[in-house]
Design a protein around this nucleic acid. Structure first.
Length: 282
RNA sequence: GGUGUCGUAGCUCAGCUGGUAGAGCAACGGACUGAAAAUCCGUGUGUCACUGGUUCAACUCCAGUCGACACCA
């Protein structure tokens, strides 16, 4: 779909898919095929290994650097993607915060496991009472990240977090794709079945040693790891991948739906999308 | 044909001795600033198979009907 548009418009493609970055994740991340990748120049696909640690901020920097060299030559570029926060970081920026310290993060996780979430809440309340009042106190990931930033920077997280949109030296057109639920679910089921046929189980088996990496805390691989551990049958794993993919698709919709700039189309409405892009470029 | 068990939410099932139902999963809605395909929050959506009966009151007790399963012929 996107490749077809890129062909018609003579564009290149930037991926904002936080899993297609990793070269080892092919089947499970539904990475475009070699043929597709050769048809149109793609960027930020397979540029990392699952051993690498990467994050939104690094991604935003990389994309902006790339675009700095790209835009003098070309008029525009398509960006596609799944990961709302990653799209946001490129379009509107992301605050300058210390990079995660993985050792510190592990320690905080240990604290969570041994002393419970209340201990994280108490710690955050002392470090940053302002953020404590805003944060989702049930969400360990949020608590841990905030504590990390406080400890690493010596300042309250809330002081470093401005969440203001940054002006970009380029114009942005946002196009959202939306299908009827029933149709979407049908396609999800097919997609998962195809992954299995294409060898997802073998791909996952080959990556099981990296299962602790953030890059493999990924839909599709986790469920297959469970199967390989003998904790469920293959059918159960497939069922879970389908269910979790539905949940993920729903979360994407929730994220993008609240974006006022988004213009929505049915994916089959190629003409409508093309017209909108051309009008934007004129 | 006979006997027995069962029929409750989309699915799997709870529901004690009668007071018009509740869990898990699914579904639906939401949050989200370096884990984001991650992490977390909220919502029960129901002719309790059907028809009668007993009762102030039936998912619950009784009878019949239909359906599923098991065993016996």
């Amino acid at each position: 779909m996107c490749i077809e548009l890129a062909q018609i418009l003579g564009s290149e493609i930037i991926s904002a898919d936080s899993r297609q970055f990793f070269q080892e994740l092919k089947i499970g991340a539904a990475t475009p095929t070699a043929v597709q990748l050769n048809t149109i120049p793609h960027h930020f696909i397979g540029h990392l290994s699952v051993r690498d640690s990467y994050n939104v901020c690094a991604y935003a920097d990389d994309v902006l650097n790339f675009l700095e060299g790209f835009f003098p030559q070309k008029q525009f570029c398509l960006m596609t993607g799944g990961s709302g926060l990653y799209v946001h970081s490129v379009c509107h920026g992301i605050d300058l915060l210390p990079d995660p310290d993985l050792e510190l993060r592990d320690n905080l996780k240990l604290k969570l496991d041994s002393e419970g979430i209340e201990s994280l809440r108490q710690e955050l309340m002392l470090l940053d009472p302002v953020f404590y009042d805003e944060v989702d106190l049930h969400n360990p990931a949020r608590l841990i990240r905030a504590i990390e930033v406080c400890l690493q920077s010596g300042k309250p997280y809330s002081e470093l977090r401005h969440q203001e949109a940054t002006e970009r030296p380029f114009r942005i057109l946002k196009i959202g794709l939306k299908r009827e639920r029933e149709e979407l679910f049908e396609r999800i089921n097919q997609r998962v079945d195809v992954m299995i046929t294409n060898g997802l189980v073998e791909e996952a088996r080959g990556l099981i040693e990296f299962r602790g990496q953030p890059s493999l805390k990924t839909l599709g691989y986790r469920e297959i790891f469970e199967y390989l551990d003998g904790d469920c049958s293959l059918d159960e794993a497939i069922y879970k991948i389908k269910a979790n993919t539905r949940h993920y698709a729903k979360r994407q919709m929730t994220w993008f739906r609240k974006d006022q700039d988004m213009i929505w189309f049915h994916p089959d409405d190629k003409q409508g999308i093309l017209d909108t892009i051309r009008a934007f470029l004129d």
